[in-house]
């Protein structure tokens, strides 16, 4: 198998292809979807926030966990960023962003510590912290709302500015994706995350630092949710306590569509990022092809179910193929050396 066919056979190639088809078909119907400056910008800009969230979530899901509190973490950190601009007017933008990222990391770490130390399912814990973090945001913000006027113009410009035709937020998402993907593929820690998700008991038996890795995964996810919060504030210029409500399902959906197995151990962050782009591009394409946007969620849902069903079929086929290989390729088949050994 050449490197090229290996690449084309990857699960990510399928999603990329689907993405291209969606873009192609929609552009054929309405050329402005891709070929206008606004269309090009939207294509790249819209998925930026979800890509960052999906990358973080993918890392958690690869360890056979899940973090449902991402939407709440995003809301809380976005409001925190806005609040900092108002309360500490002279703070540099970078510092605000770093504080939000750090705050996100702490929130993620809280999830991770409960999961890793009490050994309880992440699903329940993060369902609980989804409520708690959102409640904290609601209590803190009340009906208050941070508007564009409250934030520095330079900050808001980040939400729309482009460098060489590429929006700044998209560049941020791409850098995040590249760094995390590199880590997951080339570092010991990254491979251990896969091992933990592949078989948690065996990981313990092997003496892998399971707890530390889980804490790291959750903290990274939280930090990226914090970054996404900052991006959210810059992009939309307005933050209320309800920012990011219901986002967790989109994020998990993107990860699953991107080929990351919900039971851990397989899939890549690149796939998750592509999944996020596919979901949001389809959302924008629907009205163009004449489907009212009321149906967006139904399409997203069908896509998620279709993706996991497809993964299952592929996995079954693979295991059947491996079993068949074993049939033709028995270890230690009766070679001459064996016979000589067997005579007592």
């Amino acid at each position: 198998m050449t490197a090229l066919t290996a690449l084309l056979r990857r699960r990510e190639a399928g999603i990329a292809l689907a993405l291209l088809v969606v873009i192609g078909v929609t552009t054929a119907i309405q050329p402005g979807f891709l070929l206008s400056s606004g269309g090009w910008r939207d294509l790249l800009l819209t998925p930026a926030i979800l890509v960052v969230l999906a990358v973080g979530q993918a890392v958690v899901v690869i360890t056979r966990n899940v973090d449902l509190s991402v939407g709440s973490m995003l809301g809380l950190t976005a409001y925190l960023a806005g609040r900092l601009f108002i309360d500490v007017p002279d703070l540099p933008i970078v510092v605000v962003a770093l504080v939000a990222v750090a705050a996100g990391a702490v929130l993620g770490l809280v999830n991770g510590s409960i999961v890793a130390f009490a050994r309880v399912p992440a699903l329940v814990i993060t369902l609980g912290t989804l409520y708690v973090y959102r409640g904290v945001a609601l209590t803190w913000a009340g009906s208050d709302r941070i508007d564009a006027g409250d934030m520095p113009r330079a900050f808001l410009a980040l939400g729309t500015r482009q460098v060489l035709g590429v929006p700044v937020l998209t560049i941020v998402a791409a850098v995040v994706l590249a760094v995390v993907a590199y880590y997951m593929y080339t570092s010991r820690g990254g491979r251990q995350l896969y091992a933990i998700g592949s078989d948690p008991d065996a990981a313990e038996l092997q003496g892998l630092p399971v707890r530390r890795r889980l804490l790291g995964a959750f903290a990274l996810n939280g930090a990226l949710a914090g970054l996404a919060g900052v991006m959210f504030a810059a992009r939309y210029g307005t933050v209320s306590s309800g920012a990011g409500v219901g986002l967790e399902l989109q994020v998990v959906g993107a990860v699953v569509v991107g080929g990351v197995a919900i039971f851990g151990g397989s899939g890549t962050v690149v796939g998750a990022a592509l999944g996020a782009m596919l979901l949001l591009t389809i959302n924008r394409a629907l009205p163009v092809v004449g489907i009212p946007d009321f149906w967006q969620r139904a399409v997203v849902g069908a896509l998620i179910i279709g993706a996991i069903a497809l993964d299952r079929v592929l996995a079954r086929r693979r295991s059947h193929r491996l079993a068949a290989e074993r049939d033709t390729d028995q270890p230690g088949g009766a070679g001459p050396a064996d016979r000589e050994e067997a005579t007592p």
Partner: peptide
Amino acid sequence: PSLAVTIGSLALYRGLAVG
């Protein structure tokens, strides 16, 4: 996995209702 399936059908059924 039921978790993944019903996250999908959560979106699907809600989407049908809203649609």
